[in-house]
């Protein structure tokens, strides 16, 4: 596994926190779960078919990818929102 697989994940969390702090209003538990489920589905759908062979890099097997930055970003946004509070 190369650092190039992990760095985007970290960056996505950082950016997610940055933009998460700009959210206002209340996010209910249902919404949180919905967003996380959808981001996992999205990660499977949008995973890029690259030349790298690692789970973190977004590639499980030929024809099936997994975009970790999408999940990272969602988690980051939720963290950022939680940090800021109401």
């Amino acid at each position: 596994m190369m650092p190039g697989d992990i760095t985007p994940f970290i960056i996505s969390i950082v950016l997610g926190v940055l933009f998460g702090t700009q959210l206002s209003g209340k996010i209910s538990k249902g919404t949180t779960i919905l967003v996380i489920i959808f981001s996992i589905v999205g990660a499977l759908l949008f995973g890029a078919f690259m030349f790298t062979y690692s789970i973190y890099g977004g590639y499980i097997m030929p024809g099936l990818g997994f975009a970790t930055p999408l999940i990272g970003a969602t988690i980051g946004i939720l963290i950022g929102k939680a940090l800021k509070g109401e």
Binding site: L15, A48, A67, P69, T74, I77
Partner: peptide
């Protein structure tokens, strides 16, 4: 929220995919 995280995904994957 999902659009925001999709945007973040797009920017992190810029050099490797579309």
């Amino acid at each position: 929220i999902l659009l925001l995280s999709y945007g973040i995904m797009v920017v992190t994957a810029s050099s490797t995919s579309g």
